[in-house]
């Protein structure tokens, strides 16, 4: 009772990275709150799935396995979570800010009348003093997120309603195993007691999923292009440089919208968050929506024709010049210096 819960997403039998990241954060929160960490997995053929989950320090893994529960649809997953949360009364519940978590989370919060904060970038435990009602709340979940297009950072709390729910995007939290030997309990749910036939009114008739081919999240070096790259041809130069120095290519939202790069390469508030050791920003002006996704890069090189571009405030090296001119020179000089 009153524990921290994490909803674990499943794709092709594997627990999603974002869920493992949330388990890592959930373990930390449970330690701070001196309570247990519980995970819930809903899907089909889930035999042995707890082995992927427990090493993250999970005390109880709830499993709802039924062939109708995969692929994900809204209503049956909602029904299971709403009833389980009603019985177990978690104080904190976390989900990935994915197309599943952002479909499921609001539905659950609406049913339970509990507050939900989307796309949190930080979660910590803290107290709150309600001066108006002269009331002190101990150990609340501070849900910290950018708002207003990333121009402000808000700390949200749910003083009275439980669970305190939050979603977090993939790549925002660190993933870290607590102990390979960590031992928790497994509890199988009797699915029939949780869902009804009407919960299956939406059927998936076709599905084409691809494993994300691009892995910018874990790349050590990222060369990112913005609208200022100017053309798809110029964007190809970024790929050339990436090939030569061993990097991945990322893009700002403006570059994706302009058709220079695929959405899966998007970095920033509505894309992925990255922390590479080197980030080369090409033709990126440095809107806060973009920098929110790259500001923790260890080193930043900014290439821009505008010497006053906001991105330069994040940069260790500023190169004022045209991509079409600078990138080929970088390639040439790299080759000469590594001969």
């Amino acid at each position: 009772m009153n524990n921290v819960f994490v909803y674990c997403e499943i794709e092709e039998g594997q627990v999603a990275d974002v869920s493992l990241e949330l388990l890592t954060k959930g373990r930390k929160l449970a330690d701070d709150l001196k309570c247990e960490l519980e995970a819930i997995v809903i899907g089909a053929d889930l035999k042995g799935v707890e082995k992927q989950i427990m090493p993250y320090g999970v005390d109880t893994v709830w499993i709802a396995s039924d062939k109708r529960l995969y692929p994900y649809t809204t209503l049956p997953h909602t029904a299971i979570i709403v009833k389980l949360f009603g019985d177990e009364k978690p104080q904190v519940a976390l989900m990935g800010a994915t197309s599943i978590g952002r479909d499921l989370g609001p539905r659950v919060s609406s049913a339970l009348h509990s507050g939900l904060t989307a796309d949190c970038t930080s979660l910590i435990i803290g107290d709150h003093e309600d001066k108006k009602n002269n009331k002190v709340y101990k150990d609340l979940l501070y849900q910290i997120r950018p708002a207003f297009g990333g121009n402000i950072v808000a700390t949200i709390i749910n003083p009275d309603c439980r669970p305190q729910m939050a979603t977090v995007r993939e790549g925002v939290m660190k993933k870290e195993i607590r102990s390979e030997a960590y031992k928790g309990k497994v509890k199988q749910l009797d699915v029939e007691k949780y869902v009804s036939a009407e919960d299956f009114v939406v059927k998936v008739i076709e599905r084409h999923m691809e494993a994300s081919k691009v892995n910018i999240k874990n790349a050590g070096i990222i060369i990112a292009g913005g609208y200022g790259v100017g053309s798809k041809e110029n964007f190809d130069k970024l790929y050339e440089l990436a090939d030569v120095i061993g990097a991945e290519v990322g893009a700002s939202r403006a570059a994706v919208d302009a058709g220079y790069a695929a959405h899966e390469r998007q970095i920033g508030q509505t894309g992925v968050t990255v922390r590479p050791k080197l980030y080369i920003a090409c033709g990126i002006s440095g809107q806060i929506q973009h920098t929110a996704g790259m500001e923790e890069s260890s080193m930043v090189i900014a290439i821009n024709t505008d010497k006053n571009a906001p991105i330069n405030n994040f940069a260790d090296y500023v190169i004022t010049g045209d991509i079409a001119d600078v990138i080929p020179k970088m390639i040439k000089q790299y080759k000469e210096n590594t001969k």
Binding site: G115, G150, I152, A154, T155, I156, I288
Partner: peptide, 11 residues
């Protein structure tokens, strides 16, 4: 509204 804004920081 279950959620309350505790603090706002300008970036």
């Amino acid at each position: 509204s279950p959620t309350k804004v505790k603090a706002i920081e300008n970036v």
